[in-house]
Design a protein around this nucleic acid. Sequence first.
DNA 1: GATGTGGTATTGTAATACAAATAGGTTTTG
DNA 2: CAAAACCTATTTGTATTACAATACCACATC
Lengths: 249, 249
Amino acid sequence: MSRTRRNLCEQVVHDLGGRIVSGGIDPGDAIPQEWTLCERMGVSRTVIREAIKSLAAKGLIESRAKRGTIVRPTNDWNHLDPDVISWRARSDESGQNLIRLTEFRQAVEPKAAAMAAERASTTELERIGEAWEEMDRTAGNDVEAFLAADIRFHTEIMQATGNPFFSPVANVIGASLEASLRVTNCLPPDNIPSVPLHEKVLRALVDHRPMAAHDAMLSMLLDAAKRIERAIQKTADANEDHRSTPRDG
Amino acid sequence: MSRTRRNLCEQVVHDLGGRIVSGGIDPGDAIPQEWTLCERMGVSRTVIREAIKSLAAKGLIESRAKRGTIVRPTNDWNHLDPDVISWRARSDESGQNLIRLTEFRQAVEPKAAAMAAERASTTELERIGEAWEEMDRTAGNDVEAFLAADIRFHTEIMQATGNPFFSPVANVIGASLEASLRVTNCLPPDNIPSVPLHEKVLRALVDHRPMAAHDAMLSMLLDAAKRIERAIQKTADANEDHRSTPRDG
DNA sequence: GATGTGGTATTGTAATACAAATAGGTTTTG
DNA sequence: CAAAACCTATTTGTATTACAATACCACATC
């Protein structure tokens, strides 16, 4: 339990959820029964049961009387749930998860940008524009603020599609950008080349040119993917020769 | 409450969830407090609280002491959760939701098919092939079985991408196909033209031709979308002139 | 040996009591 | 009179106990 959360139930949810998603318990296998969890975690059965309900609602587990509570097949997990995404990110040693995240973005975001270019209202375009301006302002100095603005830029585009089924994709975007920041452990100046790439997308959206928006978004994502792949490759190489720790950042 | 569910908690979850998603309570507003719900639904506080935890885990609501439990902004809802999708479908008078579902499929599935064409293992291809054979067998006679096979066909393709973030899309596919079946209220023979369109996708997957898979999937979805749009337009027309019911199909 | 039957362990539901947090009003203070 | 500190009442959070419902397992019965 990293930091203390708002209430006991949330702590248990994150503890159990993290263990399940990171592969501590195989699908089909049962998690410890309620009383065992009560004793192990030092909380009442009320808390344990409410936590189990939360995890069940995310598709991770399923309880039946007498049979116990079993982990459901991974296909049934709500992989776009913010918590599930964060638990998955926590146990991503190899960077494989980050690769999947960016891959998914490549598949979805270009088309979403095209739809946004067709439909975005003026207020939505303004919001996207503001996010870009914030990126422009913070690029080169404040990495954290740049990250937040970057996430907002892409999230607002998902909203601007006018299709609610795109909103969960925002969770993937956030996780992807955060994880890639950690992996590429970039310096403030590294953000600068990203600004014109985003500007191209913004222009296409404002001009209501779907094709241009699609292509601009895709090339931006391909660029990001390339950088990530290179960084992962580098850390993998570094891990191979035991302990050289190339902390050139 | 359509049919009685496995336990009380699930009943409450579906009752409350349905009311929230269908717009019965606006985002930012509070739902009735726990004891009120206990009395209104005739269950204990234990059940109500566990139901609330479930809905909170799906992103619909958020509780704080004293402040009550409020409905979160719709952006935060897990729109790809099976339950949320079904509640949304239940309150789709205009067919607008069905249009959004198919739109989302058009944005995601072609790219997913391309990825599947690159990566699908032989066993995955076999599963997709079996689903298609089932479609071929049932087309023209058993509408229900055809629907199930159709869902399986598309779901297996999502799995074959090898990227877990695509699995929740399967929920959209299922809901979309079910809803479109209801709207177009088709006869068994209407399924027959769909078979060769799916076969084209299958062939492209087996031959590992991403571009072809992409295009075949897209044209299939465009075809389906056209039929749906026509059916919705027709029912809308029928509703406008009160009771003429132009049953020329 | 197959089938039915009951015991038993585990989750499901109810009820009660108290703790913690906080919105909103009340008092105190400048 | 305004603002800040402080109460208080209300609502969710947690603990405890008890019992109901269910499904697995072993035993008994035919």
